[in-house]
Protein backbone atom coordinates (compact mmCIF):
# COMPACT_ATOMS: atom_id res chain seq x y z
CA UNK A 1 0.00 0.00 0.00
CA UNK A 2 2.82 2.42 0.75
CA UNK A 3 3.93 2.22 -2.89
CA UNK A 4 0.53 3.51 -3.99
CA UNK A 5 0.81 6.38 -1.51
CA UNK A 6 4.24 7.36 -2.88
CA UNK A 7 2.83 7.27 -6.41
CA UNK A 8 -0.03 9.60 -5.36
CA UNK A 9 2.52 11.97 -3.79
CA UNK A 10 4.36 12.11 -7.12
CA UNK A 11 1.08 12.96 -8.88
CA UNK A 12 0.37 15.69 -6.29
CA UNK A 13 3.76 17.30 -6.99
CA UNK A 14 2.89 17.46 -10.68
CA UNK A 15 -0.56 18.92 -9.94
CA UNK A 16 0.95 21.57 -7.66
CA UNK A 17 3.46 22.51 -10.36
CA UNK A 18 0.76 22.89 -13.01
CA UNK A 19 -1.52 24.99 -10.82
CA UNK A 20 0.99 27.14 -8.95
CA UNK A 21 3.84 28.01 -11.29
CA UNK A 22 3.62 30.80 -13.83
CA UNK A 23 6.34 29.71 -16.23
CA UNK A 24 5.19 27.85 -19.36
CA UNK A 25 8.12 25.43 -19.33
CA UNK A 26 7.40 24.64 -15.67
CA UNK A 27 3.80 23.86 -16.58
CA UNK A 28 4.97 21.48 -19.31
CA UNK A 29 7.28 19.81 -16.77
CA UNK A 30 4.36 19.42 -14.34
CA UNK A 31 2.24 17.74 -16.99
CA UNK A 32 5.16 15.37 -17.63
CA UNK A 33 5.39 14.46 -13.93
CA UNK A 34 1.65 13.72 -13.77
CA UNK A 35 1.95 11.51 -16.83
CA UNK A 36 4.84 9.57 -15.27
CA UNK A 37 2.84 9.00 -12.08
CA UNK A 38 -0.20 7.67 -13.95
CA UNK A 39 1.92 5.30 -16.07
CA UNK A 40 3.68 4.00 -12.96
CA UNK A 41 0.35 3.46 -11.18
CA UNK A 42 -0.92 1.27 -14.04
CA UNK A 43 2.17 -0.93 -13.85
CA UNK A 44 2.00 -1.13 -10.04
CA UNK A 45 -1.56 -2.48 -10.27
CA UNK A 46 -0.47 -5.30 -12.56
CA UNK A 47 2.56 -6.39 -10.53
CA UNK A 48 2.61 -9.77 -8.86
CA UNK A 49 4.97 -11.01 -6.17
CA UNK A 50 7.60 -13.46 -7.45
CA UNK A 51 6.34 -12.71 -10.94
CA UNK A 52 8.16 -13.15 -14.25
CA UNK A 53 8.18 -10.79 -17.19
CA UNK A 54 5.55 -11.77 -19.80
CA UNK A 55 7.83 -13.44 -22.34
CA UNK A 56 7.68 -17.17 -23.07
CA UNK A 57 10.79 -19.27 -23.42
CA UNK A 58 11.12 -22.14 -25.87
CA UNK A 59 11.45 -25.21 -23.74
CA UNK A 60 10.41 -24.36 -20.21
CA UNK A 61 7.03 -23.65 -18.64
CA UNK A 62 6.81 -20.20 -17.08
CA UNK A 63 4.19 -19.62 -14.43
CA UNK A 64 3.41 -16.51 -12.37
CA UNK A 65 3.54 -13.95 -15.13
CA UNK A 66 2.77 -10.33 -14.27
CA UNK A 67 -0.34 -8.85 -15.86
CA UNK A 68 0.50 -8.01 -19.50
CA UNK A 69 -2.59 -5.91 -20.26
CA UNK A 70 -1.56 -2.72 -18.35
CA UNK A 71 1.82 -2.89 -20.05
CA UNK A 72 0.17 -2.90 -23.47
CA UNK A 73 -2.03 0.03 -22.48
CA UNK A 74 0.86 2.05 -21.03
CA UNK A 75 2.88 1.42 -24.21
CA UNK A 76 0.18 3.37 -26.04
CA UNK A 77 0.05 6.02 -23.33
CA UNK A 78 3.78 6.80 -23.45
CA UNK A 79 3.73 7.59 -27.17
CA UNK A 80 0.65 9.80 -26.86
CA UNK A 81 2.28 11.60 -23.93
CA UNK A 82 5.37 12.24 -26.06
CA UNK A 83 3.30 13.73 -28.87
CA UNK A 84 1.36 15.92 -26.42
CA UNK A 85 4.62 17.17 -24.89
CA UNK A 86 6.09 18.01 -28.31
CA UNK A 87 2.92 19.86 -29.32
CA UNK A 88 3.02 21.90 -26.09
CA UNK A 89 6.68 22.78 -26.66
CA UNK A 90 5.91 23.98 -30.19
CA UNK A 91 3.08 26.21 -28.94
CA UNK A 92 5.26 27.55 -26.10
CA UNK A 93 8.09 28.43 -28.47
CA UNK A 94 5.69 30.22 -30.80
CA UNK A 95 4.33 32.18 -27.81
CA UNK A 96 7.88 33.09 -26.80
CA UNK A 97 8.59 34.36 -30.28
CA UNK A 98 5.49 36.57 -30.16
CA UNK A 99 5.62 37.93 -26.62
CA UNK A 100 9.32 37.48 -25.64
CA UNK A 101 8.33 35.92 -22.32
CA UNK A 102 7.23 32.63 -20.77
CA UNK A 103 5.24 34.29 -17.99
CA UNK A 104 1.56 33.43 -18.37
CA UNK A 105 0.29 36.59 -16.68
CA UNK A 106 2.10 38.82 -19.17
CA UNK A 107 0.60 37.12 -22.21
CA UNK A 108 -2.48 39.31 -22.38
CA UNK A 109 -1.97 41.62 -25.31
CA UNK A 110 -4.11 41.04 -28.37
CA UNK A 111 -1.85 40.60 -31.36
CA UNK A 112 -3.51 39.24 -34.46
Amino acid sequence: MSVYVLCFILFSIGLYCVLRKRNLIKIIIGIGIMEYAVNLFFILIGYRFEGRSPIYAHDKVIKNMVDPLPQAVVLTSIVIGLSVTLMLIAVAMRIYERYKTFDITKINRLKG
Binding site: L86, I89, A90, M93, E97
Partner: peptide
Protein backbone atom coordinates in the same frame (compact mmCIF):
# COMPACT_ATOMS: atom_id res chain seq x y z
CA UNK B 1 7.52 7.24 -35.81
CA UNK B 2 11.04 7.91 -37.10
CA UNK B 3 9.94 10.21 -39.90
CA UNK B 4 7.45 12.00 -37.67
CA UNK B 5 9.88 12.53 -34.81
CA UNK B 6 12.65 13.77 -37.10
CA UNK B 7 10.22 16.12 -38.87
CA UNK B 8 9.15 17.47 -35.49
CA UNK B 9 12.74 18.00 -34.42
CA UNK B 10 13.61 19.81 -37.66
CA UNK B 11 10.53 22.03 -37.34
CA UNK B 12 11.33 22.97 -33.74
CA UNK B 13 15.00 23.70 -34.52
CA UNK B 14 14.02 25.90 -37.47
CA UNK B 15 11.50 27.68 -35.23
CA UNK B 16 14.15 28.45 -32.62
CA UNK B 17 16.52 29.60 -35.38
CA UNK B 18 14.05 32.23 -36.60
CA UNK B 19 13.58 33.27 -33.00
CA UNK B 20 17.31 33.85 -32.64
CA UNK B 21 17.39 35.86 -35.88
CA UNK B 22 14.50 38.03 -34.75
Amino acid sequence: VSAGMFTTFVALVLLSKTDKDA
